[in-house]
Design a protein around this nucleic acid. Structure first.
Lengths: 218, 218
DNA sequence: TAATATAGTTAGGCTTATCTAACAAATAAA
DNA sequence: TTTATTTGTTAGATAAGCCTAACTATATTA
């Protein structure tokens, strides 16, 4: 039995170790910041997860998921993204509302539920944020992604995903008229601070480099 | 904040006090049996629920829901029945599989989710077991229901709901070819023990009085 | 009505997930 | 390389939800 809390630790560990290239492990403080708990709490939990053979770690060493832990994390992420897709496509949820509810739904235990939900949705490959949905075998179809900051001046691109999907970012994006598949034209780039002048559906805006690095496009 | 566990106590109390005519309260042991915990545990929880003004009770007195507690319980039941309907109608779940998963889904916190789900399902009035689904205001459309045991010999009736929807009963029912809206013909009644000879889709069966009292028909 | 049985309560413990405060190890800087 | 800083660990505490064992009311029945 893996508790909801434990599932959240596995998911966090997956995000911290897999979603940055060339980073296979994480630290106690890092996890604590990510999960908004104290390092001592993380430490206690790591002992439990090690006991269950879901994470590999030694005292004062780096933290990584085991194969078993990674598989478990992927299944939670699969559920999360399927539910997000359901909420967005069937229940009129907006881009910035899906995450919070999916955080709850991802912990429902029922193999049949996940598989039928996937079928019901027509085996979607990406969620409303453009992230890939792992299949029943735990395989994730990786998509080549560039950030808005990497696109040359003058080019037009399409939003496919975002990196940090916090509600504050999503609301800002929504305000700019930005959503999945939105066309973005890069009008001008300020080398001074990396900020970009862009055009969204004919409407001009200026966004920071940090913003641009948070937006994946093709 | 009302925890999942607390929600289960409220729901149990609602079932025990509202679903039997002429019974407005419950006892500690009764609740303990229903929830499969020890009476001491129920006692602890009752103090907490009293503190939160969700139940009314005095030491050694009877236990009842307050108005607030009743409203809360109805909202949980509403969610439960809407999810059961979703699982049955959209995700190919069978009659006896819906309950277990709905027990988990009923605790998801999102007002929008419930209301959009209800709209998505077309504002259903009864769940797959034939029980009424409370509306957004907490109103429950009570349906006049007779049990199979009350039907005269020779008559034909239709299953609309069942009283005790335990997996063991549901599986037995399924085995007999019994489901929602199934036609049942009463061939003969044995006064000795109240057992009935019935016919389901041309197939004859014999069921006990206890069984017949668990089946609601019109 | 007094004895017995049932129902309800209290006290003290356990586990999970969290915390604070104090300490130890590893890393970075002087 | 010694000191300072950051990072990680341990010990002890708390709240929720459960338990057992012992006790106290209330209800039943002889």
């Amino acid at each position: 039995m893996v508790s909801q809390t434990e599932e959240n630790y596995l998911k966090a560990l997956f995000h911290l170790t897999t979603e940055t290239v060339g980073k296979q492990d994480a630290g106690t403080n890092e996890l604590a910041v990510f999960l908004e708990v104290k390092p001592a709490t993380v430490n206690d939990m790591l002992k439990k997860l090690k006991e269950k053979e879901l994470v590999a770690y030694e005292k004062y060493g780096k933290i990584a998921l085991t194969e078993k832990g990674r598989d478990y994390a992927v299944m939670v992420i699969r559920k999360h993204r399927l539910w997000e897709t359901f909420l967005y496509e069937k229940l009129n949820f907006s881009w910035d509302e899906v995450h919070e509810v999916a955080e709850q739904l991802e912990h429902i235990q029922s193999k049949k539920l996940v598989e039928e939900l996937e079928r019901f949705l027509g085996f979607p490959e990406i969620d409303p944020h453009g992230d890939p949905i792992p299949n029943a075998k735990g395989q994730i179809k990786m998509v080549q992604r560039q950030t808005l900051a990497q696109i040359a001046t003058g080019k037009t691109c399409k939003l496919v995903a975002i990196k940090d999907s916090s509600a504050s970012f999503l609301q800002y994006a929504l305000q700019l008229g930005l959503g999945l598949s939105t066309q973005i034209k890069i009008k001008n780039r300020h080398d001074f601070d990396g900020s970009l002048e862009i055009e969204i559906n004919g409407k001009p805006s200026t966004v920071s480099q940090k913003f641009a690095e948070n937006v994946f496009v093709v």
